[in-house]
Nucleic acid binder design. Sequence first.
DNA 1: ACAATATGTAATCATGTAATTACATGAATA
DNA 2: TATTCATGTAATTACATGATTACATATTGT
Lengths: 115, 115
Amino acid sequence: MNTSEDMDLVFQALAHRTRRDILDLLRAEPGQAVGHLASNFDVSRINIINHLRVLETAGLVISEKDGRSRRLYLNLMPIQMVYDRWTDRYSGYWSDRLASLKYGAEQATKLKGTS
Amino acid sequence: MNTSEDMDLVFQALAHRTRRDILDLLRAEPGQAVGHLASNFDVSRINIINHLRVLETAGLVISEKDGRSRRLYLNLMPIQMVYDRWTDRYSGYWSDRLASLKYGAEQATKLKGTS
DNA sequence: ACAATATGTAATCATGTAATTACATGAATA
DNA sequence: TATTCATGTAATTACATGATTACATATTGT
């Protein structure tokens, strides 16, 4: 998670519903195989493999071979690092939830007042 | 932030370095105009307008007309809602930073042991 | 060895995105 | 009113992405 390109990969990976659903399924049942995972979707198995490649490139999914199948695991570290970087940047705004909402209200007021 | 399509928009908006840089600049100097913002980049002014449209569609940027210019503001609410939803889902893993790192270590050990 | 199973690669097609140039609108000001 | 300034729209181009079908690899079991 050093370069900005890595962050691009993580956000892009999360920017598709199927891939977010994959992460949910891997969280619910870690170590499941590709075919078993794909059976949850209406799209082709190959499409799920393509999505898995995107997730693996972003570091969000790790896999290990197990005979003729492949076990899949969720890895949340990239999301943690994005979160850390983001909250470092904007910690003043929303490191604390209440402060964030306060900011949102202030901004709304400011916009209302000047328009 | 009700539908999954809204989350797609937010993640897609964040999945480009220029757009993340725009958010940083708007945070540093709220209310700045389009041309002033665009002067920070090497790309064309129109390209920044296109990126702004993406950010506004995702709800991350709000704007108001001010004479012949347009004032731009950062809106972090969509990110907050994505964050809330994500941490709701995976709160057991990384609502607490230490717990998250612990999970990461456990997962690494698990993978090492079975491969 | 042969067949069945699990996964992956290659080629393809349609669609979407990023960035550009040229032109158009609308507001401030001489 | 004409002109400059700030912004926006339209059309275009190159490239990336999502999803598919057909084929290929590798492993298990008969």
